[in-house]
């Protein structure tokens, strides 16, 4: 009986706090994406041959985001029937956009205008753990091109 109560409480906590956190995070992501729109990130390997003198610097950003209890349970149930796991999709989207934003913030601080050869790496850092923490790490890195004034 108590087990069910605890389970339901955790589900409710996860549902409310998780949704609130996600909404807040997406809002903050959209705001900062607008702010750093002038910094262009490319997955192109090389910057175009340029006549302007430039400097380069490695920039990176990483983030670890955890899934909430509600989503974890829902995803667990969904794996029985297969199909899209929307709850994990939004988790990864948040993580990727956040990592790219942090990379851009670093580039902006260095005075860069463009970032080339952007690579994204995803790692689940708690894989193979029995009582695992459902979280994902996204790491974004690239070469920022800084024009010399």
């Amino acid at each position: 009986m108590y087990d069910i109560l605890i389970f339901l409480t955790l589900m409710a906590l996860g549902f409310f706090f998780g949704r609130r956190a996600e909404k807040k995070h997406f809002k903050s992501i959209r705001r900062r994406e607008a702010k750093y729109r002038q910094i262009l990130a490319f997955s192109e390997r090389l910057p175009p041959p340029n006549t302007r003198p430039v400097e380069s610097q490695l920039v990176s950003g990483n983030v670890v985001i955890s899934v909430d209890y509600f989503k974890q349970i829902v995803a667990g149930l969904k794996t029985l029937v297969g199909g899209r796991l929307t709850s994990y999709e939004s988790l990864l989207e948040r993580a990727r956009r956040e990592a790219i934003l942090r990379m851009k913030e670093q580039a902006a601080a260095a005075g860069a205008e463009t970032i080339f050869n952007v690579k994204l790496e995803t790692a689940s850092i708690t894989k193979g753990n029995g009582q695992q923490v459902g979280c994902v790490e996204v790491f974004a890195y690239g070469t920022a091109i800084i024009p010399i004034a």
Binding site: L10, F17, I65, D68, E98, V133
Partner: peptide, 15 residues
Amino acid sequence: ASFKNIFGGELKSYT
């Protein structure tokens, strides 16, 4: 982190 796992959100210590 496992507490945070209930509520969701960024795990700053891991980052």
